[in-house]
């Protein structure tokens, strides 16, 4: 594969060129902000979502003395709203931001170079090749998993708002916008079941996401963890030609 990026060993799959610098500004501030807001939201949503499915042990005394489920649900709904608004904002930013801001919304399966990069990256994770390729944005496996997360978040937002509309009522805008979910799943119990499975899918994503970030930060000779804080990807210089 061509090494035209200007950085030794760095592949820029978008146009094969990158500035002759060791450091590239990849994640603009709004992208980083979205990342960390989403991290917070997913944490709150996962914990409260699990508790809505499996509530804490029963409380005694007067019902009017407590509002435990009410608060848990309130936190879940609030975090859900923030997550949804965040994703919409992130989608808009894909049009405004730099070219790396668009990456997670498009899966270039028609791009032979991307596919061969994906195969190479999978081989890298299977210990079949010795050196990882360096990417300015996500590597193809990370790119695919981020694209999967976006789809997953869209699914969770649609089913989540659809279930919210059950309480908000048939006249609510939530029902007007997301009521179609009940045309696909006429029985709301199925929506609940799939939304619950979605929680575990996100947990699995988070496990892989964190593991890959830590591992690549160490092994692939480029910054990962500090990049989502500072926005800059630093390519370490000891690539062996």
């Amino acid at each position: 594969m061509a090494q035209a990026s200007g950085l030794p060993g760095v592949v820029d799959r978008i146009d094969e060129r990158a500035p002759r610098r060791q450091t590239v500004y990849v994640y603009q501030a709004p992208v980083r902000l979205w990342h960390w807001v989403t991290v917070g939201c997913i944490t709150v949503l996962a914990v409260t979502g699990y508790l809505i499915g499996s509530p804490p042990p029963t409380l005694s005394g007067e019902a009017s003395d407590h509002y435990l489920m009410g608060y848990i649900r309130y936190a879940h709904f609030s975090a859900g709203y923030v997550l949804a608004v965040g994703l919409v904002f992130r989608l808009i930013w894909a049009f405004i931001g730099n070219r790396y801001a668009r990456q997670i919304f498009v899966l270039p399966v028609w791009d032979r170079m991307w596919i061969s990069g994906l195969i190479y990256t999978v081989k890298w994770y299977m210990f079949l090749v010795r050196d990882p390729k360096k990417y300015i944005g996500h590597n193809p496996a990370g790119h695919a998993s981020m694209f999967g997360l976006v789809l997953l978040l869209v699914f969770m937002i649609c089913t989540g708002f659809a279930m919210y509309s059950e309480g908000a009522g048939r006249d609510s805008w939530q029902y007007a916008m997301f009521g179609w979910v009940f045309s696909i799943f006429p029985n709301s119990q199925d929506v609940h079941t799939w939304h619950h499975l979605g929680l575990w899918a996100i947990v699995i994503f988070v496990l892989g996401h964190i593991y890959a970030a830590v591992r690549e930060d160490i092994l692939s000779r480029q910054s990962m963890i500090s990049s989502i804080v500072s926005g800059e990807r630093v390519f370490r210089d000891d690539f062996r030609e």
Binding site: P55, P57, A63, S64, Y67, M69
Partner: peptide, 16 residues
């Protein structure tokens, strides 16, 4: 939505 036991749900009081 209209269950008379709904306050117990919101309070976190359940039959175990």
């Amino acid at each position: 939505d209209k269950c008379y036991r709904r306050p117990h749900f919101d309070a976190g009081q359940f039959v175990e």
